[in-house]
């Protein structure tokens, strides 16, 4: 939600429909609530609200509050940082107050948007200004500790993906276990940083416990992009049966599936200075594990692949358990098994 022309539809087109940022100029203004379903490891629905309608105060079309807010996990409010944001802040405050009364579980995420082109100092000034305005207003109304978070975003760089990642991460059940698995992997394989990416949106749903680093997120996310493009160009079309027959013929006499070591996508990359190679491993249809390794790791790829294999198995188990909505008590059991498997890496 947010004021009109603040960039809501642009954000959802760029993140969820892979629209090139410069083509968002052609987007029409949104007239009705747009619902986008996102099929991934979890099912998400993104609702894009038209900015000109006030949901709470609309006598001619009363909205069904429960239908709208009853099931949502996070509310993203977009503020145009290059515009006069006072009105937007006032409306945001009204919204927060409404939500706090009846739907306290909703995380409110404020995207201070269109910050590309602003200087770093100015960005921070705006963020501080908006934060103070909102918090003052809320405490005046007697609302303390509302779950409000602020992100500086722009569709022209990775910040919008990073902000969305943080929003989505809060909605993942048992995120801590996922992170523990990745941290474990990083330790045993001497990785610098590992990310679990949602391939379609390039949102990362978990990372290890080392500090956040924009640069490594950028390179990993671009790496996923390159792999997607390669796959589309060379892997998305059917080869002829003769081609397959020739490859499965002598001297190997095996089905192609049995000839390859790993049925999922695997990739490695070495930089010119031979430091920090990067590896990628597909986890399932939606997720990929991308890790930045340390110098010299590329020579030990087979061992690393084995460790990664184990973690990938663990991740798959994890998602099966959380997806099937088994009782929460079952989840720790499944994860313990994963941690137990991770011990294989100790031979490193």
């Amino acid at each position: 939600m947010g004021q009109r022309r603040s960039g809501k539809s642009s954000i959802s087109s760029v993140v969820f429909h892979k629209l090139p940022p410069n083509e968002t100029l052609f987007l029409e203004s949104t007239a009705r609530i747009q619902k986008d379903s996102l099929n991934s490891f979890m099912e998400f629905q993104v609702w894009d609200f038209p900015g000109q309608i006030d949901v709470f105060d609309n006598p001619s079309f009363p909205f069904d509050m429960d239908a709208i807010f009853g099931e949502i996990g996070a509310l993203i409010w977009v503020i145009d940082a290059q515009d006069d944001y006072l009105e937007a802040v006032a409306r945001l405050n009204a919204t927060i107050l409404h939500l706090q009364r009846s739907y306290q579980h909703i995380n409110i995420e404020v995207f201070i948007h269109k910050v590309d082109g602003l200087s770093d100092d100015y960005k921070l000034d705006i963020q501080r200004d908006i934060t103070i305005r909102i918090q003052d207003e809320l405490s005046d109304q007697g609302v303390e500790n509302a779950p409000v978070n602020f992100h500086l975003t722009s569709i022209y760089n990775h910040s919008i993906f990073e902000a969305f990642s943080k929003v989505i991460q809060k909605l993942i059940p048992r995120l801590g276990q996922l992170e523990a698995m990745l941290t474990n992997l990083c330790r045993t394989c001497r990785f610098e940083k590992a990310y679990l990416f949602d391939v379609n949106t390039k949102i990362y749903i978990a990372t290890d416990s080392t500090p956040e680093d924009m640069a490594s997120y950028e390179i990993c996310s671009d790496y996923v992009d390159v792999i997607i493009d390669f796959t589309e160009v060379y892997g998305s079309w059917q080869r002829t049966p003769e081609w397959r027959k020739r490859l499965e013929g002598p001297p190997w006499e095996q089905k192609l599936e049995d000839q390859v070591a790993c049925e999922w996508a695997e990739s490695g990359m070495v930089l010119a200075d031979a430091q920090r190679p990067i590896m990628l491993r597909e986890v399932d249809r939606f997720l990929a594990l991308v890790a930045i390794m340390k110098e010299g790791s590329y020579e030990k790829m087979p061992q690393i692949n084995m460790n990664v294999d184990v973690v990938v198995k663990g991740l798959t188990e994890f998602f099966e358990i959380t997806k099937s909505k088994m009782t929460p008590t079952a989840v720790p059991g499944g994860v313990t098994a994963v941690n137990g498997n991770g011990v294989v890496g100790n031979g490193h």
Partner: peptide, 29 residues
């Protein structure tokens, strides 16, 4: 584009050589 990303990551000039190897195995595809 990938070369640009690498140069941003390594902090080396854009004209410099950036990556030396890139391999990708897409299962049985």
């Amino acid at each position: 584009a990938w070369k640009h990303t690498c140069s941003k990551f390594t902090g080396t000039p854009r004209n410099a050589e950036q990556f030396s190897d890139f391999e990708y195995k897409m299962g049985a595809n």
